[in-house]
Structure formats: structure tokens, C-alpha cells
């Protein structure tokens, strides 16, 4: 319950700060802004990319067809959004219980330069065991992101390092590889878990 308070203060605080900063290094897009056509992820069957999972297996979009799938793009040098989302996903998977074992859950890096197979293996090891980490050559990562209509961009930081801006939504596909829905960042768990259950249900419907 303590956390709930923090979250509420947070909303007020961040709102106040945003107002006061008012400078605009970030884009202020209306929450209901329509998504341009063509931004909807392709069906998995229409994607084409070759990556390697954190155990060294060759993987691609076809690896995911046959089971409902959850996909998230990120990078392991990400201090805030990525560990938060992977923790959230881990929590959703715990809530799903045994059903979690019926899903593919994949974390695809947008920073293959630093996220080697070994780095991905170490990182995903801290989260729910169902989560797989995929990496590969930069051009293949780009093709994967293109298929999901995810975007990412390398941004230099003050210290001479770099960070990555990236799509932080979680993509949900049914067992046939059709997009069911997306879970946006900041979406409460009360909404996320039913969405995942829907992907699992559509799987059952598709099978009959």
C-alpha cells in the first residue's frame, strides 16, 4: 500500500515538474494521438530475421509460431525502463502461474553491440525463467524491429557512453502469430494480465 501512495504522489509530482520545466526536449504527444497506418506490427509469419537466443540457439519469427508470444525490445545497459518492464513481465508470468509455461516470452536487444549472447544470458537470468533473450547482428536486429514496427535510436550521453531510445511496449501475439494487442508502458497490471489471458484464449479458439 505504501507503494500506491508513492505512485500517486509521483503522478502529481511529475506533472508539476513537467509543467515547471516546460522546456520541451521531449516530444509532447497527445495520449490519444492516432497511430499512423502501417504502424501495426506484422504477423509473425510475415517477419523475416535471424537472431541467436541467450543459450546460443538460432531463432527467428517462426520459432514463436505455435504458442502465444510476448515480445519486448530493450537493452541490458538500460537502468530504468528495461529492468522495470522485465520485472513487470516477471510479475505477470507469476500471476499466470502454470499458463506462463504455454507462452513464448522474448526480450530482443536493440543494442547488439554491447548485448552479446553472454550478456543476454546473464541479464535474463535475474528475471522469470520463461524470459528468453535474443540478440544478433545489427542488421538482423533492425529487421526484427521493422517487423514489429518498433523503433530505436542510439543517443550519446554526457559521460561519453550512449543510451538507446526504444519502443517500450510489450507485444502480444496469439499462437498463429497474429498480433492480439500491445501492453503500453505504465499500464497497470490489472489490465496487463487479462490482455495476456486473451492472447492465451485466442490460442484455444484458434485451435478449435
Amino acid at each position: 500500500m505504501q507503494r500506491r501512495h508513492v505512485v500517486q504522489y509521483g503522478a502529481a509530482g511529475v506533472g508539476a515538474v513537467a509543467l515547471m520545466l516546460g522546456v520541451g526536449w521531449w516530444r509532447v504527444d497527445g495520449p490519444g494521438a492516432p497511430k499512423p497506418a502501417g504502424q501495426r506490427p506484422l504477423p509473425l509469419s510475415a517477419m523475416d530475421f535471424r537472431l541467436t537466443d541467450h543459450e546460443g540457439n538460432e531463432v527467428g519469427p517462426e520459432t514463436l509460431i505455435g504458442r502465444p508470444t510476448m515480445v519486448f525490445f530493450g537493452f541490458t545497459y538500460c537502468p530504468d525502463v528495461c529492468p522495470t518492464t522485465l520485472s513487470d513481465i516477471s510479475g505477470w508470468l507469476e500471476d499466470l502461474g502454470d499458463d506462463a509455461a504455454r507462452m513464448n516470452v522474448v526480450f530482443i536487444t536493440v543494442d547488439p553491440e554491447r548485448d552479446t549472447v553472454e550478456a543476454m544470458a546473464e541479464y535474463v537470468g535475474y528475471f522469470h525463467p520463461a524470459i528468453r533473450g535474443w540478440t544478433g547482428p545489427a542488421n538482423q536486429v533492425a529487421r526484427a524491429a521493422e517487423g514489429f514496427r518498433a523503433s530505436y535510436e542510439r543517443v550519446p550521453t554526457e559521460g561519453g557512453d550512449y543510451t538507446m531510445n526504444h519502443t517500450a511496449s510489450v507485444f502480444l501475439f496469439d499462437a498463429k502469430g497474429e498480433l492480439v494487442t500491445m501492453i503500453d508502458y505504465h499500464e497497470p497490471r490489472e489490465f496487463a494480465v487479462p490482455k495476456i489471458r486473451r492472447a492465451l484464449t485466442e490460442d484455444v479458439e484458434g485451435a478449435t
Partner: peptide
């Protein structure tokens, strides 16, 4: 401060002073 825009893209930048 991390911001997530309407396209679902998250980015991070130094925040200015916080009052």
C-alpha cells in the same frame, strides 16, 4: 527523467532543477 511518447518510445534525458 524517462518519457514515453504516444508511439510508445521511451527516452531518457537529464532533468532540470526540480522545485
Amino acid at each position: 527523467e524517462t518519457k514515453t511518447n504516444a508511439d510508445g518510445v521511451s527516452s531518457m534525458a537529464p532533468a532540470d532543477e526540480i522545485t
